[in-house]
């Protein structure tokens, strides 16, 4: 690839990220944990998006592609982390201050509730909150449409119990 094409690709990528940065943030925010701070998840997601970008062929929308890569990054990152005994320190500390410490109490509560769910459940509820149709949730999570509906029903019941507790 020549320099001009590469520059063009970088510009397209940055523009796409800028347009969809909220999607990345929202996906990462439901997977944040002590082992996985926001900046680590966010950086890893952006890096993976960049790595996958040359293979993106406009077959799906930018947002679907971002959801897919971001969810895969967060879920696989958590699974990888569970297998690893200790986390290696990051080579640099990002300046991001995304953690919603200044958000209202109920938004914090919302994140707390979602983070109590299982890894895949978090992805499903996130997409439901994003008002994605069942078919798209199924495509993004690799489940069948019926399975999504069943799981979503259970998750909502679980959340209802958590809310009343």
């Amino acid at each position: 690839m020549n320099r001009q094409n590469q520059e063009e690709q970088e510009r397209d990528f940055i523009r796409m990220i800028k347009e969809n940065e909220r999607v990345i943030y929202k996906v990462c925010s439901v997977y944040v944990s002590e082992e996985f701070p926001m900046e680590d998840l966010y950086q890893e997601t952006v890096l993976n998006l960049w790595k996958a970008f040359p293979r993106f062929r406009n077959e799906s929308s930018y947002s679907t592609y971002i959801y897919r890569v971001a969810l895969n990054t967060c879920i696989s990152g958590i699974r990888r982390e569970k297998r690893r005994p200790k986390k290696a320190p990051l080579s640099f500390s990002a300046e991001l201050t995304f953690e919603p410490d200044n958000m209202e109490e109920n938004i914090r509560e919302l994140y707390r509730l979602i983070r109590q769910l299982k890894t895949l459940e978090r992805a499903i509820i996130l997409l439901w909150l994003e008002e994605k149709p069942y078919q798209e949730i199924a495509e993004l999570t690799g489940l069948s449409r019926n399975n999504v509906a069943t799981k979503l029903k259970r998750i909502r019941e679980k959340l209802k119990v958590m809310l009343n507790y």
């Binding site: 990345i24 943030y25 990002a94 919302l110 509730l113």
Partner: peptide
């Protein structure tokens, strides 16, 4: 939850999340 999620979205719209420094 949904309305709260929408408010999260609204808040995020006002912020520049991806800083060039990153």
């Amino acid at each position: 939850l949904k309305s709260m999620w929408t408010s999260v979205d609204e808040r995020l719209k006002k912020q520049e999340l991806l800083k060039e420094s990153i």
